[in-house]
Structure formats: structure tokens, C-alpha cells
């Protein structure tokens, strides 16, 4: 297996007023292609911060971040957003769908950054929606869908451009048990049958069980790295 994500001695500090607060203290981490990583830990431990660094949403204070062969800690803001468009699929806790757009238009959004033809975009949207089992809801607006359905639309949006890495921050955090299970089954299926590499932050140990590897973050340091047999 090859390393898709490599973090070397990564620190991240925030400046709050006059005070500098270090949130990540020298994190070393390797994630391999095809892994489904669950990142756990108490609130405020720095999970989202770490995920944002891996996803190229933020830059480390020091250290190296190598993802999909690119030293993204060295990219400018402009090239970082192009890089995200090419490599990262995002799944958020609150779905972050655009309320004015239908499900299919929402799924199409990442494709607007590509040079694909309208017909090709439409075809891929259709495939992605079928994959998450929502083809018949294509014309619905987010407010006409349940939370679980909205998250499935968000997953379709995350995979439609075939990104290198799926990044999820508490994807089931806003869902009830049954919907959470459906979403986790879907993510696991994407990981197993499509070989998608997934990094998922979660509070929920049940959700973490779907992952192939479980990693704990405590006060800005990684602890407890467990791999599960598939």
C-alpha cells in the first residue's frame, strides 16, 4: 500500500487576542490509500483542526503536509483551492447543501469547476445519485429531504468528481441512529467497493466501528492507533 497522506511533525497554533494557543503539538501521521480512518477524541482535542490540514482548508504553523503527492503546506491560497477541487470530497456534519438548488444541482456543483460537458456532468450526477440511492429525489430541494437523505446527497456531491480523498467531519453527528447506520454503511461500501480513502472525524464509537482504522487524538497528540481486519 502507498501513503496517500503524510504529516510530519505538524503543529498548529491559533492566536487568540495576545495569546498563542497551540492546538496540535507535533503530529506524525501516515494514511494509506484505501484506508477508512476514524479520528476520535474529546471535544476541543483538535480533530477538526487536523482534518482541515489534511483537506487543505487550512495551513499548519509548522511541519509538512504531503497529500496525494503534493506538499500542500507550501501551496498558495489560490492553488490550494484548485487542489481541493481536484483531490478532496467533503462531507459535513450539517450537510452544507445549497438550499436554493435541487439535489441534482447540488451534486453538480463540484463539476462546474471541471471542463466536462453538460451532458457528461448530468451523467455523472445521475450515477452519483444512484450510488447513494436517491436517483428518484433528484429534483427535490434540500428542505424537502430528511436529514439522512440530505447527507446522502452531500455524499453524492463529495464523490461525483471522483476525488482522491473523502473527508468527513462528524457525518452522523446530526442524525438519528438508523440514519447514521445507513450513512455509515454507505461510506463503508464506498471504501470497500470503490476503494475510496476516507478520513472521518467522529464522536460516536459505533460509527467508528465501520472504519478500518481508529485513531485517537488527545490534547493535540495522537494516541491509540488501532487497525481492524476487514
Amino acid at each position: 500500500m502507498t501513503a496517500l497522506v503524510t504529516l510530519r511533525n505538524v503543529t498548529k497554533s491559533y492566536v487568540r487576542g495576545k495569546q498563542k494557543v497551540e492546538v496540535l503539538h507535533g503530529v506524525d501521521l501516515t494514511i494509506e490509500t484505501g484506508e477508512f480512518l476514524a479520528l476520535m477524541g474529546p471535544s476541543g482535542s483538535g480533530k477538526t483542526t487536523l482534518l482541515n490540514l489534511v483537506a487543505g482548508l487550512d495551513q499548519p504553523t509548522s511541519g509538512e503536509v504531503l497529500v496525494a503527492g503534493d506538499r500542500i503546506d507550501r501551496l498558495s491560497r489560490g492553488s490550494l483551492s484548485d487542489w481541493r477541487a481536484r483531490h478532496i470530497g467533503f462531507i459535513f456534519q450539517f450537510y452544507n447543501l445549497l438550499p436554493v438548488l435541487t439535489a441534482e444541482a447540488n451534486v453538480e456543483v463540484p463539476l462546474l469547476l471541471t471542463n466536462l460537458s453538460k451532458a457528461e456532468r448530468r451523467r455523472r450526477v445521475q450515477v452519483a445519485l444512484e450510488l447513494v440511492g436517491l436517483a428518484e429525489r433528484a429534483r427535490h430541494k434540500p428542505n424537502e429531504l430528511s436529514g439522512g437523505q440530505q447527507q446522502r446527497v452531500a455524499i453524492a456531491r463529495a464523490i461525483v468528481s471522483d476525488p482522491t480523498l473523502l473527508v468527513c467531519d462528524e457525518p452522523t453527528g446530526d442524525l438519528d441512529r438508523q440514519n447514521a447506520e445507513e450513512i455509515m454503511n454507505l461510506l463503508q461500501a464506498l471504501n470497500r467497493s470503490q476503494n475510496k480513502t476516507i478520513v472521518m472525524v467522529t464522536h460516536d464509537p459505533k460509527a467508528a466501528e465501520y472504519a478500518s482504522r481508529e485513531l485517537h487524538l488527545d490534547k493535540g497528540l495522537l494516541t491509540n492507533d488501532t487497525r481492524r481486519a476487514a
Binding site: A55, L57, G78, S81, D82, W83, R84, A85, R86, I88, F90, F92, N96, L98, V109, P110, L113, R157
Partner: peptide, 8 residues
């Protein structure tokens, strides 16, 4: 969200 998805 749009900027996360890669819009400049």
C-alpha cells in the same frame, strides 16, 4: 462551502 469545494 463553495470555497471548500474549490471555488476561488
Amino acid at each position: 462551502t463553495l470555497r471548500a469545494l474549490g471555488f476561488g
